[in-house]
Amino acid sequence: MTQQADFLSATRTFYDAIADDYAVRYHDEPARPMDRGVLFAFAELVGVGGHVVDVGCGPGRVTRYLGSLGLAVSGVDLSEGMLGVARRENPGIRFELGSMLELGYGDGTLDGVVSWYSSIHTPTHELPALFAEFHRVLKPGGHLLLAFQVGDEPRHYDRPWGHPVALDFLRRRPEAMAELLVPAGFDVRSRTEREPEASFEEKVPQAYLIAAKSRAAI
């Protein structure tokens, strides 16, 4: 098994196992006002009716919220378990099985891509390939939104809700992520960082980058 296939398989297995428990625990996402503010700003930049794909969509709560802001949304996820929840709760939205690294969309066909805490299982050395794929599917001027936890050390989750699975959640530095977006052909338009919210059991700051496809990747 290749290194890429290995981390994709581990991610799929983890989320298939926890899908139902995860859906119950995070039933009201996006719950934090500042998170909704970032998503609203992204939707304004894309424009009403713009086609946006939520990659690593999980149970589809953020996908649905973006749709409520006037975007034409769809979702992609590795986990059939998560997609089962998303389809059950959002019968009017298209959800597809797939990998962020190989999206089933043509070159320059999307107005926006959202990666809402879904790049956090992608190894650092795979991020240039991931951003290149986002660049490929976006129209010129199309927008990308990345959300992730801030930090240098990963958080290891072992046996969540008693399930016999484990996975690392990788934390990143906003400046490092922004530096990787530039050679991928993006202009970073916004960099937002907020403090953790204790009421949601957050331990570290959260970061959000909005970038626009500007040119060919280097």
Results as ranks from 00 to 15, higher is better:
150 V>D: 10
44 E>G: 13
159 R>D: 14
49 G>C: 10
169 F>K: 13
121 H>G: 09
65 Y>Q: 03
80 E>P: 02
26 Y>N: 09
78 L>Q: 09
130 L>Q: 10
27 H>A: 15
165 V>N: 08
24 V>G: 04
102 E>D: 12
110 L>M: 11
65 Y>N: 05
210 I>N: 03
171 R>W: 09
80 E>R: 13
92 G>E: 14
3 Q>A: 14
79 S>Y: 07
118 S>M: 12
142 G>H: 01
169 F>T: 11
62 V>K: 10
171 R>Q: 15
169 F>L: 15
59 P>R: 11
30 P>T: 11
7 F>Q: 02
204 V>D: 12
68 S>K: 06
201 E>S: 14
102 E>S: 10
99 S>F: 00
180 L>S: 00
72 A>T: 12
59 P>L: 13
140 P>D: 01
13 T>P: 01
36 R>I: 03
87 R>Y: 07
155 R>T: 15
39 L>M: 08
148 F>Y: 09
120 I>L: 13
157 Y>V: 15
158 D>F: 11
200 F>R: 15
185 G>V: 00
204 V>Y: 12
12 R>D: 14
202 E>I: 09
5 A>K: 10
112 G>C: 04
60 G>M: 12
37 G>K: 08
106 G>I: 02
2 T>F: 04
38 V>C: 06
1 M>R: 05
190 S>P: 00
124 T>C: 01
73 V>Y: 03
152 D>V: 01
142 G>I: 00
197 E>L: 15
187 D>I: 07
41 A>M: 08
94 R>A: 14
119 S>C: 14
37 G>H: 08
35 D>F: 01
104 G>N: 10
136 R>Q: 03
115 S>A: 15
44 E>M: 11
192 T>N: 05
24 V>N: 05
12 R>F: 05
209 L>N: 03
65 Y>L: 04
73 V>T: 13
12 R>T: 15
189 R>K: 05
31 A>Y: 15
43 A>N: 04
93 I>M: 07
163 H>K: 15
183 P>G: 04
12 R>L: 11
47 G>E: 10
120 I>C: 12
69 L>Q: 12
180 L>N: 00
42 F>Q: 03
172 R>A: 12
179 E>I: 00
95 F>R: 05
171 R>A: 13
7 F>C: 12
40 F>C: 06
51 H>S: 13
55 V>N: 10
189 R>V: 04
191 R>H: 00
121 H>Q: 15
119 S>R: 02
168 D>E: 15
162 G>K: 08
97 L>H: 13
68 S>A: 09
196 P>L: 06
91 P>E: 10
33 P>N: 04
194 R>K: 07
21 D>F: 06
146 L>H: 02
153 E>K: 11
115 S>D: 09
100 M>C: 01
182 V>S: 01
63 T>K: 08
185 G>F: 00
154 P>C: 12
66 L>I: 06
167 L>N: 05
88 R>L: 13
73 V>P: 02
44 E>S: 10
100 M>R: 01
152 D>L: 04
76 V>R: 04
185 G>C: 03
108 G>Q: 08
22 Y>R: 07
209 L>H: 02
69 L>F: 01
136 R>C: 06
152 D>S: 07
33 P>W: 07
180 L>D: 00
60 G>E: 14
11 T>M: 12
180 L>P: 00
161 W>R: 02
27 H>F: 09
129 A>L: 05
83 L>T: 01
88 R>G: 12
164 P>D: 06
68 S>L: 09
214 S>F: 08
56 G>H: 14
164 P>S: 03
142 G>C: 00
210 I>Y: 02
147 A>Q: 06
